[in-house]
Nucleic acid binder design. Structure first.
Lengths: 225, 225
DNA sequence: ACAGGTAAACTACACCGTGCAGTGCAACAG
DNA sequence: CTGTTGCACTGCACGGTGTAGTTTACCTGT
C-alpha cells in the first residue's frame, strides 16, 4: 500500500506535479529513516524527524496520516533501496569471475560492510526485529519480500549459474546461499551485535575470509579443501 | 528462576532481611522481564510492570531507583538463568556421546527451540540489539559476558574435548563452535526473525538436521562427506 | 505459647512535570 | 490554488514523588 504509488497526476492542463513536492516527501522519509534507525519507533519523535528533514511537522502529517504509516513507508522504501544496492554489489563482484575465492571474498566483504548511507538501514532492521510483535504481519511480510528474500534469491540464482559453469559444486542453491550468508556475513553481524557495535576492519576481513574459505570447503569444485 | 537459591526454610534464628518481603523483588523482575520482552524498554510502562507483578508501583521504586536500573537488573539476571539452562542442555546431550550426529542434532534442536519459559528472554535479546545504541556500554559488556559468551565458551570447550577423543577433527575450537552455532542455530533464528515469528517444528527439525550434517562435513573425523 | 509491640515493607492514591502525537488555523509562496 | 510553514493548543500517557495508612515479620514480656 505504501509502495511508490502516488499517481500524483494532478489535473490535465494543470501541469506536472510540482517538482518540490515529491522531494519533500523523500526528504521526510530519509530523515525518518535516520531517526527511526537511531531511536526506534517509540522513542523517535515526529518533531525530531521534522527537524532532521528541515520540514514543518505539519507537512509530515500532510503526507502521512500517521507516525505508523510513516514508519511502514520508511521500512519498505529502505528495504527496496538496499535490495538495489545488494544487486549492484552482487553484480559488481560476481558477474565476471577471475579468481573465485578472491571474488567471493570481495563480495562478502562488501556485503558485510555496507556504506555509511546504508548503516541506517541495518539499524532499522534491528528495530524491526524488536518491534516485530507490534507490527502488522502483512507489513513484516512485505518487508521480508522486498528486502532480505529478494537479496537471497539473487544470490541463490547466481550461485546456481556458477555451479552450471562448473565453478561450484552445488545442488541445493538456496541452501548454499544461506550457508554463504551465514558463514561470511552473519558471523560478522553477530560479532558486531548486528551493526550496533564497531568492529575493527581487520577483524571483518579475517572473518569474511575465513567464512568464504569455509564455504568453498563445502561447495568448492571437486570437493577440494 | 535461576538456580534454586531460595531454600525458603525459615530454619535458624531467622534472617536480618525479612524473608517474605524480599521475594517481592523477584516477582518484580520476573514481571519486568515479561513486559520488557513484549514491549521493549521505551514502550513498557512501569505501571504495566507493577500490574503484571501484582505489586504497587511505589514498591518498584522502592527496590530500584530507576526504570533503567530495573532494566539492567532484568538483563543480567535473565542472561544468567539462560546461561545456566544452556549449560544443562549441553551437558544433557553432549556429556555422553553415543551417536555423534544424533547427539549433536538433539543438542542443536534443544538449543534452537528453548522452552516457553525462556521465550521472554530471547525477545529481550532482540530488544537489546535494538536498544544497543542507548545502553551504557558496560551493561552490554556485562550482558554479553554472562550470557552469549559464556555459552560459547562452554560449547567451544566441549568441542575441544570431543576432538581430543577423536570424534571430531578440529583445530580452532572457537571457530568450530561459531560454525556450529551459525549452521545449526542461527539459521533457525534468522528464519523465525529471531523468535519473533512462529516456525513449524518440522522446519526447525529439518534446518537443524541439515546444519549439523553440514557441520560434520566440515569437522567430522576423517574429513568424510 | 500466646498477646502485643515495633518498624520495615507495602499499598493506594493523588499529584507534578514533561514530552509527545496529532489538530486547527492564519499567513505565505510558487 | 496547492502546498508549506509556524505556532498555539488539546489530550494523554508516563516517569517519578509524597504521603497517610495498612500489612507483615520478627521480637519481646509474661
Amino acid at each position: 500500500m505504501p509502495a511508490a504509488q502516488e499517481p500524483t497526476d494532478r489535473g490535465p492542463a494543470a501541469g506536472r506535479p510540482r517538482r518540490g513536492l515529491a522531494e519533500k516527501r523523500q526528504s521526510i522519509t530519509r530523515a525518518a529513516r535516520t531517526v527511526f534507525a537511531r531511536d526506534g519507533f517509540t522513542r523517535a519523535s515526529v518533531d525530531a524527524i521534522a527537524a532532521e528533514a528541515g520540514v514543518s511537522k505539519r507537512t509530515i502529517y500532510n503526507h502521512f496520516t500517521d507516525k505508523e504509516e510513516l514508519f511502514r513507508s520508511v521500512l519498505i522504501e529502505s528495504a527496496g533501496s538496499v535490495a538495489t544496492w545488494h544487486r549492484e554489489v552482487l553484480s559488481r563482484h560476481l558477474d565476471k569471475i577471475t579468481d573465485l575465492e578472491r571474488d567471493l571474498t570481495a563480495f562478502g566483504l562488501a556485503w558485510a560492510s555496507p556504506p555509511r548511507e546504508f548503516a541506517d538501514h541495518f539499524a532499522l532492521v534491528r528495530q524491526i526485529h524488536a518491534e516485530a510483535g507490534h507490527l502488522p504481519p502483512d507489513v513484516i511480510e512485505a518487508w521480508q519480500e522486498t528486502g532480505p528474500r529478494a537479496a537471497f534469491r539473487q544470490l541463490s540464482h547466481r550461485l546456481g549459474e556458477l555451479a552450471d559453469e562448473g565453478l561450484l559444486d552445488v545442488d541445493d542453491t538456496d541452501l548454499a546461499a544461506r550457508h554463504f550468508a551465514l558463514l561470511a556475513v552473519s558471523d560478522v553481524s553477530q560479532g558486531s551485535l548486528f551493526g550496533a557495535l564497531e568492529m575493527p576492519e581487520s577483524e571483518v576481513n579475517s572473518i569474511v575470509a575465513t567464512g568464504v574459505h569455509t564455504f568453498l570447503r563445502l561447495y568448492g569444485p571437486g570437493g577440494t579443501a
